[in-house]
Simulated assay, not measured.
Amino acid sequence: MSILVTGATGGFGTYALAALKKLVPQDEIFALARSEEKAAQLRENGFSVKIATYDDPTSLEQAFHDIDRLLFVSSSEIGRQPQHKNVIDAAQKTGISYIAYTSFGKADTSTSPLAQDHAYTEKLILESGIDHTFLRNNWYLENEGGVITSALKTGKFIHAGGEGKAGWGLKREFAELAARAVSGKFDFPSILEVGGPLLTYQQLAEALEKVSGKKFDFITTDADTVSQFLQDNADLPKDAADFTASSQEIVKSGSLAVEPDDMEKYLGKPLSSTQDALKELFIK
């Protein structure tokens, strides 16, 4: 058996490779990188590397040759639908038997703009006839890094999420779940709604109070105010601060209020509690 992980130099891919090599022999694992320069660290860590980009169908077909199972980490670039089509076309042409794809909560019915590319990709995979699991990931707790670090610094927990809820979880554990899916050693459904317990920002702030021992002024405001606050207090550049604030508006919309499936069943252990996850990332 051979398994290929795309996006292997990114955070999710790095975590997935680390988890995967605990499940299958490392010589069965291949990592996809965009260049030899980016591949260097992967090779140092003992992984076989294939070079390809989502924009180059020929390179993808060459990389997918003799690969059985694919962990397809979605592109983060704007206009990614053609890229995703290249990946699925190459997988179909080279006879890949299974795809685990990192998608978005209830992608096929969600009205969130973020769901559109994922719904498109899920449809391509369905039409390809390739066996699959759509890993519909909720929200990484890491996405709230600016909000949380600025709260710890200033005593103000400020957000634009209203009463919306999200199923925050650790990127590491979402990637471990993906590794288990693509390993072929466990039974996974064709669709898995991945996430932690649904919480509001106020509940997230309360969990942070418990693990930090600090009390926060809890401020609900608009995205522009959040962005400026993060630029001033979390040392975030404007683009990053704007992204965080706009992400909070997605939470406010209700798009992430998707009840997770049985994470313990598929992860093989309980998902870290919100308090433990906060400790791991932010409490030193």
Score class of each variant (00 low, 15 high):
87 V>T: 00
273 S>N: 01
98 Y>R: 08
95 G>F: 07
38 K>Y: 02
112 S>M: 03
117 D>S: 10
124 L>V: 10
122 E>W: 09
263 M>V: 14
15 Y>H: 10
186 F>D: 04
187 D>Y: 00
37 E>M: 09
202 Q>K: 15
79 G>I: 11
265 K>F: 02
22 K>I: 02
169 G>D: 06
237 P>W: 10
191 I>S: 00
79 G>T: 02
202 Q>D: 11
142 E>T: 14
5 V>N: 06
12 F>Y: 12
23 L>V: 03
32 L>D: 07
34 R>Q: 08
100 A>S: 08
166 A>N: 14
168 W>C: 00
135 L>D: 00
126 L>Q: 11
28 E>T: 15
79 G>Y: 08
245 A>R: 00
144 E>H: 08
237 P>C: 04
260 P>N: 11
163 E>L: 11
270 P>R: 11
150 S>M: 01
217 D>E: 13
207 A>Y: 06
54 Y>L: 15
29 I>A: 04
248 Q>W: 05
143 N>R: 03
218 F>M: 04
162 G>R: 01
282 F>W: 15
73 V>L: 14
193 E>Y: 10
42 L>T: 02
261 D>P: 00
177 L>I: 14
180 R>F: 13
118 H>C: 09
141 L>D: 00
172 R>C: 07
239 D>A: 15
284 K>Q: 15
38 K>Q: 03
196 G>K: 06
45 N>G: 08
240 A>L: 10
71 L>K: 01
144 E>D: 15
58 T>S: 15
122 E>F: 06
249 E>H: 04
76 S>D: 01
182 V>I: 15
216 F>S: 15
166 A>D: 13
261 D>C: 01
14 T>I: 08
175 A>V: 05
273 S>L: 00
19 A>E: 15
232 D>K: 12
47 F>T: 12
54 Y>I: 01
138 N>I: 01
280 E>M: 14
17 L>E: 08
233 N>Y: 06
110 S>R: 10
190 S>W: 00
273 S>R: 06
99 I>F: 07
56 D>E: 06
49 V>M: 08
13 G>T: 07
86 N>P: 05
52 A>I: 02
226 V>R: 01
56 D>L: 08
189 P>D: 12
251 V>M: 12
182 V>T: 14
155 G>Q: 03
82 P>V: 03
